[in-house]
Design a protein around this nucleic acid. Structure first.
Lengths: 339, 339
DNA sequence: AATCTAAATGTAATCGATTACATTTAGATT
DNA sequence: AATCTAAATGTAATCGATTACATTTAGATT
């Protein structure tokens, strides 16, 4: 692979001039540009990003941390991130935390060892505690945007883009209550994960406001997966008095729940109403189509990436949370309660 | 951020010694290791990957090219890639080609400009033609593994890991034939995409062998998405004599197809049997559960990454194709034809 | 203690681009 | 034509780690 030196030699100019050809071509006389251009073509040269990045102290890489690959909701956020990243000249590294089992400092170390310029957190691993404990050497965080709902106190005050998760779960629960449901179960991911915690808060708020007992079947154990949605639902259905409505912490759990309800010979929404979260593309074609809370994934992604760019560029950091709008999408998995 | 110089100074050794502490610690006397270790702790130093990578001429990054984010099948391949990448010290960059609209040379240039050490292709963009035309300067490819079925002649002879797509579609079609179906439509992605072309070949082979007419309703237009599965199915259902079975080029199309069939007041599999491809995790819980061809995604991912590592390390390249086994998963979306 | 040897450590070049500063050049002005 | 000025170009230091080769050191052997 040819270097800038060879190009310079061939073009009869200095390496500085070749470098300028790429970075500030308007500084060069046209005849010089032409010479350099030809030399580049002859040698097939392209800038060595390894050297450039080293010299500039910038990787042009950002890390997107997500709890699992292949989750449709995250894919839409990623699309938003990507479109902005492309425009800004960044490439995206993904870091799958396998349901948050990867500690954050493993991610932040990638920044401190100059492997990436910034981080967008889509999963809810907790940064502060780990980072602060980095040998007590820094209480500064890498450029970081938190783009998942999150009630974790660790994350409070960090730049973030998200829906109002409490309000969203509150709205969903209220909708079920308005349909006459009184026994409403909440199928959650592990409550230690902040997303689930926040959604639980909204659920509880609505239940309390309606003076409804918070069902002890509110089960907290599990990942936000189809499999765990099924497992928890099976348990729920085996209990003496089953709920008439299920609020699920995401659509995948809801789809799993609907499957189990139907397997048990019951009907959705005839016997049990189901609401999900995220409005993934499978929600529209499930049987019945799933009522859910939609999050504007692409918008969240775009805004997050803009925010991250500002932080990386050292512009005034706004630590405030950008709240984007959620929307209750009413489909056919919910119906009035039959009492 | 502190550099190796400061650590060296603090420890009272040379920078070479500090470097050895990280790379060949067994060369250092224990007392020296101790001194260096303390200096590292005091300064909070961590190796500058930008500098190290530049010096070593290696990025430790690979690019995974995929047609779209959030496709569950690709996610399973990614998991396989990731587990091996982690073991080998690589990080993963993703490049979404938005249904193959990104030309390959845009990806290969990332290699030639030293932004990545190698490429795994999960989408079926065609490398040769673009790369060879790189100003006629190189007919050599970047380290590359092709991990999608692909009948494209451009890709023949490249290192790859895949199922036998022709055989898989052949098996699926034969299964439908064995159930008594005679009018079998094939819902494909764009046939210009090699994956679809290969699957089409297997379908045609089985139809010919059974002396069945290849239905002109074999529609070739579309991406491998739910939306296009629906669109094509709607068209199919509006035709005078509709097929009794649908072979879909992937599960998402099949799920879309089932939804439209049910919307039209028909039953799956009562009126129309449906088979998908990939066995994504939604297939098991669809209504009815989807019969499909399973691909061992994680295995494909793992093998691909191993192969890529070998190529990057300059070991004897095996250009041969690793064929992994597919499997027909029979669920409830297929039934004997009612004639 | 002197000598030898292998292990440990240091010196300094190097990777390839960028860029501050210095120098040259082209064209304008007298 | 001489002088001036701004634009164009060149020189050489620099980013931070690695490593070939040189030197020093510790401990063994005489």
């Amino acid at each position: 692979m040819s270097s800038i030196k060879e190009v310079a030699k061939r073009a009869g100019v200095s390496t500085a001039t070749v470098s300028r050809f790429f970075n500030t071509p308007e500084q060069l006389r046209e005849s010089t540009q032409e010479k350099v251009k030809q030399a580049i073509e002859q040698t097939g040269y392209s800038v060595n990003a390894l050297a450039r990045n080293f010299r500039r102290g910038k990787t042009n890489l950002i890390i997107v941390v997500l709890p699992a690959l292949g989750v449709p909701y995250f894919a839409s956020v990623m699309r938003g991130i990507e479109s902005v990243a492309k425009a800004k000249g960044y490439s995206i590294m993904i870091k799958d935390t396998q349901f948050n089992t990867v500690p954050f400092n493993q991610v932040s170390d990638m920044f401190f060892s100059r492997q990436a310029d910034g981080i967008i957190l889509l999963g809810s691993i907790s940064p502060y505690q780990d980072v602060v404990s980095r040998n007590g050497h820094t209480n500064s965080l890498p450029p970081l945007v938190v783009s998942c709902e999150n009630a974790s106190p660790d994350l409070a005050g960090l730049p973030s883009v998200r829906i109002d998760g409490i309000k969203a779960a509150f709205d969903a629960t209220n909708y079920l209550i308005s349909l006459g449901h009184r026994k409403i179960a909440f199928i959650s991911g592990s409550l230690s994960q902040a997303v689930s915690g926040e959604r639980e808060a909204g659920y509880s708020k609505a239940m309390k406001q309606a003076k409804l007992a918070i069902h002890e079947d509110l089960i907290t154990d599990g990942h936000l997966t189809i499999e765990d949605g099924r497992r928890i639902t099976r348990r729920l259905l085996n209990q003496p008095s089953r709920p008439t409505a299920l609020l699920c912490a995401n659509d995948e759990m809801a789809l799993g729940a609907m499957h189990e309800i139907k397997l048990a010979g019951l009907s959705v929404p005839g016997d049990i109403s189901v609401i999900g979260f995220d409005d993934i593309r499978y929600a529209e074609i499930s049987d019945p189509p799933l009522t859910t809370i939609a999050q504007p994934g692409e918008e969240i992604g775009e805004k997050s990436m803009y925010k991250l760019c500002n932080i990386i560029d050292g512009q005034a950091i706004d630590n405030k949370t950008d709240v984007v709008e959620h929307q209750l999408i009413i489909r056919s998995s919910t119906a009035p309660a039959v009492l």
